[in-house]
Write a protein that binds this DNA or RNA. Sequence first.
RNA 1: UGCCUGGUGGUGUAAUGGCAGCACAGGCGACUUUGACUCGCCUAGUCAUGGUUCGAAUCCAUGCCGGGCAGCCA
Length: 591
Amino acid sequence: MSDAATPSVPSDFIRDIVAQDVAAGKYSTIVTRFPPEPNGYLHLGHARAICLNFGIAVENRGRCNLRFDDTNPAKEDAHYVEAITRDIRWLISGWAEAQLTFKPKGAAPAEQSVNGRPDRLMVPRPADAADAEPYAASDYFDVLYDYAVELIKRGKAYVCDLSPEETEQYRGTPTTVGRDSPWRSRSVEENLDLFTRMRAGEFADGTRSLRAKIDMTSPNIWLRDPLLYRIRHIAHHHTGGKWCIYPLYDYAHCLSDYLEGVTHSFCSLEFVVHRPLYDWVLTSLDLPRPRPHQYEFAKLIPTYTIMSKRNLLRLVQEKVVSGWDDPRMPTLAGLRRRGITAAALRRFVIGTGITTHDAGITDIAVFEHVVRDELNQAAPRRLGVLHPLKLVLTNLAPGEVIACEAVNNPQSEAPTTRTVNLTREVYIEQDDFAEVPPPKFHRLKPGGEVRLKYACIIALDEIVKDASGQITELRCTAQLDTRAGEPNSGKKVKGTIHWVSAAEAIEAEVRLYDRLFTVPEPGAEDDFLKVINPDSLTVVSAKLEPALATAKPGECFQFERMGYFTPDAGDSQPGMPVFNRTITLRDTWAK
RNA sequence: UGCCUGGUGGUGUAAUGGCAGCACAGGCGACUUUGACUCGCCUAGUCAUGGUUCGAAUCCAUGCCGGGCAGCCA
């Protein structure tokens, strides 16, 4: 089993870059960061970024900061901060907890001196410290403001009075150059005055902005005097009503990286065109410490899912799913509730590699294979009948109990066993009987024999039907001498099926999940809601062996021949457990 | 008809001038008290053309195809 603790160390262009920097002695400690915006839940796509950033930190004995990129209060919420923090802790548990780095509660960048020059730096704090909390870009608003003032003083930023619409017109298009704003050449004094008054709340939203003075004719649109600050008279989940101007991503992100001492800043390919701006801000300020560098890699897009937060939010809002943590969602919370292990998730995202070629789509079968492989190693086996059909062993007396030894996990090095009791009445799977069997049907059929797993071979004698022709029970003879240890135990039959004692079985609600979408690329449809799989959730009333009565959320079991199942953390009740099917077993016969 | 970026089996990747390898998917078979797992075998690839070189997936040129960029989102 690939254990958990250490996924095998991959090799890719990013690790090559870091290795070169380490070899060159460029940094004393490698510092990465994972910077989610708290406007939704983390999903499979984020998992790759998390594993990259924490992986680099683990491999280089460095650290990885969790920083909330919370510069747009209109979309963000503290609820997401908590959910994201929880999901990250879960995903890295048993692997990179030691690298997860927070800051002291309430801390802002501390003043320091580097080679006689003033500087600011965040103090790191291990995430498990009592007074630690995640980093947040909003903790840097004061410092970011000071840097903006510095940019103005250097003649590299100006207050612009163009409206959003005018700004767009002046910007030009990818194929035509932009025009200078009429406010571009204001004096430093005027800019300083106006920026101060922007902060003081004198101006309405959208009436003015702070812009970088770069080049309106640049072929790179992001260098055409991009906005640094916008006016937004709205409260922020972390800073409350303190601010009415908020910095934009391109300005805040690079400086946040710098303030935290980040050495390598990884983001997705769409930011390649922003990199010159990332570098421009940092070099324009003439900062005393070595600056961070941005590197880009391709996003992970699996088949049969959608990955954008906006679209996932729509599934939640339109109640296609029960919430962000619905087990059909590709969110970390949903995957966890479904029973996917963190180790499986890590193996999958690390296994798909880090590259610079995009537009690729990863077959979800790769994910399913990893999940099955992890669970096959780890999950104890249990007997559970999803669609019960009563079967009476007529040669057993009512009340008679035959103890059978069942292996808990044949994959473990020293397998343990438990006892399952065979009684006169048992349940078997409806699919394991066919009155008119298809070709190569190895299960129970008229005149046929089959083995009850861990027990004995049975022979079908009689099919009992009700007035409407529905099969109500099967009457069979148990060949008790075919049990393990008995003289006829070596007798071979084609099929072995699972079963539970009717007298001892517990009742449970079992939720059978399938893919949420019917097509491999739902995101490519004009409306992904039109390709929702109507059978993505089927709820059944199942009969389970009594050992499952004490199952706890977080535990995973293989119901033999049926798949992997885990108790639902939210909906299980004492006496009425709810199980979620994580994934079916591979089934080469059904195909 | 701008700038940036990229093309390796069906899919995701490795090979950094020297035997095109791995995984998934698919097919066949063995084993099996899970039609699971495991094991064995098979199928299938360097976008095209030219150039440099003893030797090119890799370097160069051209072409073709794809992705990204015109939020006061991140």
